[in-house]
């Protein structure tokens, strides 16, 4: 009986290690495949090069990095205030009766596959930008033109996609603020708005901050939606109506026809992406740990 129990315990331990082994394997295989070209081409040239022409074996990913950053930044500018507002609404303002369905709706947003978002963006947002947003921009700059495939399209769709992450984590952080904080603030004569703005949100700020970091990771790593609506043109964008290619989109699109060297270069992009996401993850964990220490 004892030996049986021991064996089971070992099996369970092995299962627990599977995730760790997977992370190790992923790291090894991405680096093993992408590293040779990175070293051969030069890490600095690869990252700072402004020309991505894989067919002539020129691999500079700066335009892709800029593309990813532009789309992500746009998504955060739209998504973060909206997400925090939803979290405040859910935890401080809404009645139980409205909070329930509202929360379910936000969760539903998280469940919709990214390719569906991409399709929606392609069929609704891209033409809308071409037909309705462009004329507005042209009032200020008549030379501007766009096909609709743009940073703006990517940013709007990504903003919707990162909402659930921001809302659920921020809401957790806000709910975790002790009731005494609210009572003390109200007892001192502050009204509800002042309590929310000056006591509750500041008290929950590290949780909110880490939700923003995780949302940023999601936006950077998102592939299918971005692939369908940002245009995939590896060039430096001049305005938010210009098309861009992102790190993820370039990998997804070009893997299907890439030759051996080109394929390695795509894995090298994977390395860059992997490192960015790791750093963001570690940052988010550190912020959360700090938050745990404060409460």
């Amino acid at each position: 009986m004892k030996a049986y129990e021991k064996a089971i315990e070992k099996l369970i331990l092995i299962s627990a290690i599977v995730t760790t082994v997977s992370v190790a394997l992923i790291t090894v295989f991405i680096f093993k495949t992408g590293m040779p070209i990175l070293l051969q081409y030069g890490v600095l040239d690869f990252i700072t090069g402004t020309d991505w022409s894989p067919t002539s074996e020129i691999f500079g990913i700066m335009p892709l990095i800029i593309g990813t950053l532009a789309v992500t930044l746009g998504a955060l500018i739209i998504g973060v205030p909206t997400g925090i507002a939803c979290a405040v609404y859910l935890s401080e303002i809404a009645s139980k009766k409205t909070a329930g369905p509202f929360k379910a709706a936000i969760e539903l947003l998280a469940g919709i596959p990214s390719v569906v978002y991409g399709f929606f963006g392609l069929i609704v947002l891209v033409p809308a930008i071409r037909n309705y947003i462009l004329p507005i921009f042209q009032k200020f700059n008549p030379d501007l033109n766009t096909s609709g495939f743009s940073i703006l399209a990517g940013a709007v769709i990504l903003a919707i996609m990162i909402l659930p992450t921001i809302v659920s984590l921020s809401e957790n952080a806000i709910t975790a603020v002790p009731q005494e904080f609210r009572e003390a603030s109200l007892a001192l004569g502050a009204n509800k708005r002042e309590t929310i703005m000056k006591v509750i949100v500041p008290a929950a700020k590290s949780g909110i901050f880490s939700s923003v970091i995780l949302a940023m990771g999601r936006a950077i790593g998102e592939t299918m939606a971005v692939l369908l609506i940002t245009g995939n043109v590896a060039q430096m964008p001049g305005s938010i109506l210009d098309p861009v290619a992102t790190l993820t989109g370039t990998i997804a699109m070009e893997m299907s026809y890439a030759g051996p060297t080109h394929q390695q270069a795509l894995f090298a992009i994977g390395i860059v992406l992997f490192i960015i996401i790791m750093l963001l993850n570690i940052l988010a964990q550190a912020v959360m740990k700090k938050m745990g220490g404060v409460n």
Partner: peptide
């Protein structure tokens, strides 16, 4: 385990392929 949850799907794709 947390790290694994944060890895973008395209990286999983590259890994699965390799």
């Amino acid at each position: 385990t947390e790290v694994l949850a944060g890895i973008p799907s395209i990286i999983f794709g590259l890994f699965g392929f390799a």
